[in-house]
Amino acid sequence: MTYEQVNSKVVRVPVTQSRPVLARRGSMLGYSGQVSFRPVAGQGQGVRSMVGAALAGESTAMMVTEGDGSVLYGFRGLYTTVVQLTGDSMVVEADRLLVHDAHLQTSIEMVGQGGVRQMARGAVTGQGLFTTRVSGQGTVVLLSHGGTFPIQLNGDTVGVDPQAYVAHTGALQVELKQSLGMRDLIGRGSGEAFQLHVSGHGVVHVQASEEKF
């Protein structure tokens, strides 16, 4: 079951009876074969996680694609990145998920630790403090502005603009750092008052744009 990158903005996904996929609603471009689309509410399993997802603002309308055929997916001309998961997990914001194998597990979790103060900071940047964790064996397709590039981390730390951060895989810690100085307070800052500091072993996917969805 391989996902084929048709061009930078479109992927072709084979679907069989035993291998349905989950995709963002409205992302189907076309298909051949006998395929149907069924809406599903929220991410994760059960009512509790659905409510949690709604509270966290971390729920994107998804749909199951079932049947036998091959389906083209793309979304609003955004770039797509195909990522293979081999038993490890990926942390990503829900609205950046275009399509993934339905047998992958998804759950909502909080980014970083630090309680209320950190939460307030998350709200300030407009960057969701809650993210989706996708784990298992399978394929995930991410959405981005202008494509993503991976940054490999081997125990070192990298600072990423919160708007440019897309996802990460592996054993990584993510911390939101604030470098607020006098200049920022009087409106003459560098525009980079907040940074995500990522450290550990793994891969960070960064997009070539600061545009949010």
Binding site: N7, S8, K9, V10, G26, G30, Y31, S32, L72, G74
Partner: peptide
């Protein structure tokens, strides 16, 4: 993005 050419039988989303 680049144009994708496909052959029938095929079903296409009206927006795409």
């Amino acid at each position: 993005g680049p144009v994708i050419f496909v052959e029938p039988p095929f079903r296409a989303d009206p927006e795409a």
